[in-house]
């Protein structure tokens, strides 16, 4: 099961999520030095809301705001759930 959403355009991010034995989050952001913790928090909070624990998430961030990151993650999750 795998889902991808978003893009690598500026102010956007590309998120991939797939099932995994444990929760793993990988963040590559052009603004990571300044916003890594904030991006991580958005991803973790969203996964908690969705009660997803055994997933691997990869975020390729091009300066997306929090709501964009959350949106892309939610779409990726929906797409993963449809991917059976």
């Amino acid at each position: 099961m795998k889902g991808t959403a978003g893009s690598k355009e500026s102010n956007d991010c590309l998120i991939t999520i797939e099932s995994s034995v444990e929760r793993k989050i990988e963040i590559n952001s052009i603004v990571g030095v300044f916003f890594y913790d904030q991006i991580l928090k958005v991803v973790e909070d969203t996964l908690d809301e969705q009660e997803l624990y055994n997933v691997k998430v990869i975020v390729e961030d091009k300066g997306a705001l929090d709501y964009t990151i959350k949106s892309r993650l939610l779409t990726a999750i929906e797409r993963m759930r449809e991917d059976v």
């Binding site: 603004v31 030095v33 300044f34 916003f35 890594y36 913790d37 904030q38 705001l65 929090d66």
Partner: peptide, 9 residues
């Protein structure tokens, strides 16, 4: 408010 507060280097 838009970006969040960036961490200090």
């Amino acid at each position: 408010k838009i970006t969040g507060v960036p961490k200090q280097i």
